[in-house]
Write a protein that binds this DNA or RNA. Structure first.
Lengths: 146, 146
DNA sequence: CTGCTTGCAAATAGTTTGCACGTTC
DNA sequence: GAACGTGCAAACTATTTGCAAGCAG
């Protein structure tokens, strides 16, 4: 993973410095997406701006992708993790579910046919609530409403 | 519209100051959602922080809602406008389409049945691209990818 | 040893908050 | 006139950028 990526980058005129290497390693160890801030805490010798820059190039070459689960920070993960998933996030309890993108295939076809628009799902979580969570119990405007 | 809202607020222990009134009027005159910043430019005597505060209370009482079309500023509209629409935004040309939420009814049923999750669509635009727009032509990481 | 990478500080965008003053009811 | 609303300045969160020094190839 690290090695292939390293080669990819070199043949692209790029180098593999400490920040990029450690970011890849940290992401490899994760099962759930992480924010840049969390990565920075986990990698105290790497400056957060370098984390952002590393994530940016890794995303550019397709090794990393990011998703937005809430209004807060973007969350990053290796692109090969949870391939083609669409997150659902509960406004009430905050739980997130990674649903297979295939669920949306029919909808995509309809939208493509009726609107001439090709959905590119997965990037933003879809808000909603668990059946057992009472949406009326949202005290302050819930995170997704901000 | 203004009057009913005013009554709603008074019976709620709230008052109708200049900011709230002008924000409602400005939104009434719009057909498309606006950012707080744009409202502030349109209402030079109202401070942008008051615009945010006004929008917040109006949203709390259900008069206003906001959507996220891009990674940038949130956009606000009267809650009764474009009822139950789901925006689609093209990553390439930026065009947005307001699709009827009913399009998603089937998907909602499936997700509710299979995942015990009730979709609450419409709040975030769905990214994708127009059939005629070439997604490969996105030079920099497109706005929705940030 | 060339120039891509990184650290640091500062800038940015969008939004929120504390406080004192103004206005509504 | 008491309490809520508003203006202003400052804080804040998430992220980006300029610059000089560091390190990879």
């Amino acid at each position: 993973m690290l090695d292939e990526t390293a080669d990819r980058m070199r043949s692209d005129g790029r180098r593999l410095g400490a920040a990029r290497r450690q970011v890849i390693e940290a992401l490899s160890a994760r099962t759930a997406p992480v924010s840049a801030e969390e990565l920075a805490e986990e990698l105290p010798t790497i400056h957060v701006s370098s984390i952002y820059r590393s994530l940016a190039v890794l995303e550019e070459i397709g090794v990393v992708r990011h998703v937005h689960l809430t209004h807060g920070a973007a969350l990053y993960e290796l692109a090969d993790e949870t391939p083609d998933s669409q997150y659902l996030v509960c406004d009430v309890c905050g739980r997130d579910i990674a649903a297979p993108a295939a669920l949306f295939d029919k909808l995509r076809q309809v939208i493509e046919k009726d609107y001439g628009f090709v959905l590119q799902g997965g990037h933003f979580a879809l808000p909603g609530h668990c059946i057992d969570c009472d949406p009326a119990s949202i005290s302050r405007p819930h995170p997704h409403a901000r």
